[in-house]
Amino acid sequence: MPIRVRLNVMLAERNVKSKDLAEFVGITEANLSLLKQGKVKGVRFDTLARICDYLHCQPGDLLRHEDGGDATDGQAPAGGDRR
């Protein structure tokens, strides 16, 4: 899938710990890790809203659509198989 999750980049730019974000959003650290790696099939709007609230950013800052599906920022494509 050509959707790239840039959550890692945003966390690094804002110097925020995954644990703190996971706690604020109300998801487990394991699920946040999967989201960072793009190994999820979707993101709920309320999850996205909470992340944006915490990081003071827009959904577009977290997600990128890339033709061809090649990673340009080291992030994994969304929807990867986590099983």
Partner: peptide, 8 residues
């Protein structure tokens, strides 16, 4: 349900 479990 498996698909839904992969939505965070």
């Amino acid at each position: 349900a498996d698909d839904l479990a992969q939505i965070v």
